[in-house]
Design a protein around this nucleic acid. Sequence first.
DNA 1: CAAAATCTGTGACCCAGATCACAGTTTTTG
DNA 2: CAAAAACTGTGATCTGGGTCACAGATTTTG
Lengths: 229, 229
Amino acid sequence: MTLKFRDIASRESLILGALSSRERATLLGMSKPCHFHSGKVIFSKDSPGETMMLIETGRVEISLTSAAGNRSIVAHLGPGDSVGEMAVLLGGDRTADAVATNDVTGRMLHRTVLMSFLTQHPRTTLGLIADLCRKLQSTTEALADLSTADGGTRLAKVLIGLFDRWGVEEPDGYRLTPPVSQSDLGDMAGLTRETVNRQIRAWQTEGMLRREGRELILIEPDMLAERAQ
Amino acid sequence: MTLKFRDIASRESLILGALSSRERATLLGMSKPCHFHSGKVIFSKDSPGETMMLIETGRVEISLTSAAGNRSIVAHLGPGDSVGEMAVLLGGDRTADAVATNDVTGRMLHRTVLMSFLTQHPRTTLGLIADLCRKLQSTTEALADLSTADGGTRLAKVLIGLFDRWGVEEPDGYRLTPPVSQSDLGDMAGLTRETVNRQIRAWQTEGMLRREGRELILIEPDMLAERAQ
DNA sequence: CAAAATCTGTGACCCAGATCACAGTTTTTG
DNA sequence: CAAAAACTGTGATCTGGGTCACAGATTTTG
């Protein structure tokens, strides 16, 4: 959590970041509790969406699947992040698929509630706009990068994001838990499972990271940051 | 302009799209005229930015250059589009480079003016948020695509965007004018100039498009849309 | 209007990473 | 707890597109 590349990775939560803790409490008071079992689809792309969720526990995977059936994982969200705010802010359909990879609990917020809250808090709204801009910029930069960077670099960037968000400090490094499968890593970095496998074992023999069962332990964060440029 | 893939391509202008014509007039009244000669740098990344420009005539190229010196063209903006709104909305530095590829005239708007306008028009602000979300979504989708789609598909998408925005209807097709060099096309699609060249001539012999000097004339829009999936 | 700069055209070669094809391991589940 | 399902490991091959290296064509500019 206190990984030094905190500043490199971009924040995922748009809504909550712009709120003061008082405002947050107000909003939460207008929400309803909800939960999803592991593996459940929270919503799928193009379905109508009137609500967003604030995650309290668990993990949610956001993904897009191309017409050709190629899946791409856009984000792994967790406690403190919000899911589905896009469709709510847009007033349209869901723009991606969301699946609970763990058991998830959170608070559900209805579109009308959020929108009236925003119209009453112009200052907060400007903060939200700034967050959206930041996110848009980092995505645009990623897009520019992606065409340039090679696979290893892309995978390194993905790992930085994951460790930054999910890494648990331990005596000998940072543990990524629960584990992320190599094919999921591939879907995040735009690589095949096989390539991910080879790259990770290469890094393992270089001593950058270690594995315990399916979990990765990052031993040399600096080396990883270096590898991502 | 009335190309059928209008709906595929995403709009570039964030600010103006959300305004009613009355509001637009109000904002324009608070702006100052400005102009840039062809080739002039309008602003460059990481410089402080307090103003944005509404383009009236001419063309502005927005680009990012990676540390490795790899340029990527993010957008070609023209009349009706706005330049530099990101830094203004963020209250921070410029997030990309902007260069006038033609002589450009427009109206300059100061940060303070825009911000106070927005706080006074919450409804418009929500529209702006929706626009930002749409843009964010299309960028995210492009990012997901990039790893999947092959070069030809990516170039096809770039061409769709260009013809949609700049194509001029003619008896035998749509003309892209002024011309865009093959290396620029490469910088937009994440390909080398050579690959762009080969792909374009392949399409030419297929009869999808034709060239006159450096200008492209799109003969079969459907074929191009098809090629982009 | 000639020289310089910037584009386009094309072949030869190379390589990162995809695909394919199995084998072994770990986890899930009935 | 055994069978099924889901991961990981690894070699053999294939290939899209990058890199290099020129040659010719157009545009710009002094």
